[in-house]
Structures are given as C-alpha cells and as structure tokens.
Nucleic acid binder design. Structure first.
Lengths: 164, 164
DNA sequence: CTCCAGTGATTGAGAGCTCAACTTCATAGT
DNA sequence: ACTATGAAGTTGAGCTCTCAATCACTGGAG
C-alpha cells in the first residue's frame, strides 16, 4: 500500500475498456427493456426460468440454481419468492437434506418462458450475433472464457437457454 | 408475428452467449464489490466522477453526463442528488439555457475519485486485461465497437477515466 | 404576442439488489 | 451423545434503478 506504482491503463486499453463498458451496459439495458416490455419480466428472471426449463424435472436446488445464474443466494431467494408469487415457480423441500429447497418450473412458468423466448432470442441476434463475423463470435468466446477462468469459474457450468 | 420462424441460436452461439452473460455479470459484480468495499461507492458513481474529472472545468451538463455514462436522465438525476449529498458533486444552474443544470466535481469528489482509482484500475487489470493477449484486447475493441454501432452510438463518445 | 410541441431535468412509487444477520440442519471431532 | 463448524436458505433494511408523470423553460408557427 506504500509507493505509487499503479499501472494505469494504456491508451488502447482505455479505449477498449470504455467501449466495453458502454457496449455491455447498453446491451444489457436493451435486452432488459425488451423483456420487461414484451414479457413483463426482467432479464434475470428469464435466465432463472431458462435454466430451470433445461434441468431434469425442470427442477433444481436453490444453491445450484444460484450457481448457474451467477447469482447470490440472497438475490435468488428474493427472485424465486417473487416468481413463486406469480405462479411461475414452485418451491418444495428436499427430504434427503432438509436444509435444501428445490425450485421447480410450473406449467405457467414454462408457458411464460416459451412466450418470451422468441422475442428475447431475436433481440440477442439483432444486437449481438448479427453484428459479428463467425470469427468474432469465436474470439468473443475465447475472451469470455479467459475472463471466467480468472474469476474462478469452470467452463461449461451454465447450460441451456431454449425451452424445449 | 405469425408463423414460427424464430432463428434459435446455433450451439456455438449459445455457448458463446452463456459464457458472455456469465463473464460480464461476474466481472461487473467483482468491480462493483471492490469499489463498494474499498471506496464506499458503486461502479456507476465512479464512472460519473471519472467522466466529470476529465471534462473542462470538471463540469458537464446533466444531459451530456447522462450520455457519456450510458445513463438515463432519471438515473443520473438520482445519482447526482446522492453524490451531492456526500459533497462530491455540486449542481449549478446554467444562465444561458435555464432548463439546463451543470454538475461539477468538488475537491472532495476529486479526492474520493483519486483515492478510489488505483484500486479500481488494478481490479480491471487483474480481472480483464491481465488475462488477455494484446490481440484479444484489439479483438474485444472491435467487437464492442460493432455492438455499439448497432445500438446507435457513435464511437469515441466516452472519454477519460484517470484522474489527472 | 400567444400558443404549442419539444427539451432538460426532477420527482415519487415501486421493483430488484446487496449486505449483514439469523434460522435450520448436517457433519466431523471429541 | 455433545459440541462446534459450516452449509442452505431466508429475511429485513437500505440503496439504486426504472418507469411514468411532472415542472420549467425554449424555440418556433400562426
């Protein structure tokens, strides 16, 4: 903490960083707004429903669901409570380990996801994949994998997005 | 809206997308937590202070500040109100156009930014740039530029990050 | 001059998130 | 069996963000 040896960003790194911040926050905002407007749910809820729909029995332990959605347990607990109040998710206790709770997608939840999916995927295409060459998609994958490995995440943790 | 011609994501696109979502949300969370812990401010506030510090007179119109921080006017207004209550920003009316308001960084605000900057830049390095090759930095810049152009943003809008 | 559409900014309500407790339960050590 | 440690999940308070409504002002059009 003594001495001033901070390595500031190089000009090209700074440009990249500012561009990254702008792009990710705008992309996030655009997807969030699209889903909120057309499906009445924020992006975070869509991701929860999508992960559940892809799990065996459309059901997962809360802690597993938190892990694959990059969410804290507290955040997930609040979110599932709200999803449950809409009838999209049902919570059931686990008989093996009575600390655990399973979150299961209801039929209504599945229907809401299925209704939201086309518009969402279309928005992801329009804003991201339609703008990139196949090489850039590959590069982006490598880059995000590198970042993830630095944040202590094993690759291939997250699965599924399509309902079906 | 009739017919089911949704173009779902290809397997490699899906992989990339999931990896992207995980990486960006974790990176965002890590930077936010670092700043909140070490400097008592969220990332969004740091970005506001940083943009102000780089402006002539350390001062910008609210609408200009909103634009370069990718923030809605409402969000910025709330944020600046909170920053003002901490003494980090001062609001002054514009005499030319009396609808406008200038936000100016105070000395205390500059000091808070200067104190926060080393830790923040270090975290950006650790989590992002230290994990990428120079080619990947270049690729990331191209990719984010492509995304920005699709969201109606002219490049080079945002400037500055370092205090000084 | 008067009216009016549009811009800059603020406000309040409500939704969602974070952080720090706290409860309940499992398990390893003694 | 008894205790300690830690994991799973929930809760409440406080903070930030979004959305819609609103206020104040500007710049024309008639």
């Amino acid at each position: 903490m003594s001495g001033d040896e901070t390595r500031w960003l190089e000009p090209d790194e700074l440009e990249t960083w500012l561009s990254y911040v702008a792009a990710t926050s705008l992309l996030d905002g655009a997807l969030d707004r699209q889903l909120q407007r057309d499906a009445g749910m924020p992006l975070a809820y869509y991701q929860i429903l999508a992960m559940l729909s892809d799990a065996p029995g459309r059901s997962l332990r809360m802690s597993a669901l938190a892990a694959i959605t990059q969410s804290s347990q507290s955040r997930l607990s609040h979110a599932v409570a709200r999803l449950e109040s809409r009838g999209w998710v049902r919570r059931t206790p686990c008989s093996i380990d009575r600390r655990s709770t399973f979150a299961q997608l209801t039929e209504e939840g599945y229907a809401a996801l299925a209704a939201a999916a086309p518009g969402h995927v279309c928005a992801v295409r329009r804003h991201l994949f339609d703008r990139l060459t196949p090489e850039q998609v590959q590069q982006l994958h490598e880059i995000t994998r590198a970042v993830l490995s630095g944040l202590g995440v094993a690759d291939g943790d997250a699965r599924g997005m399509l309902p079906g």
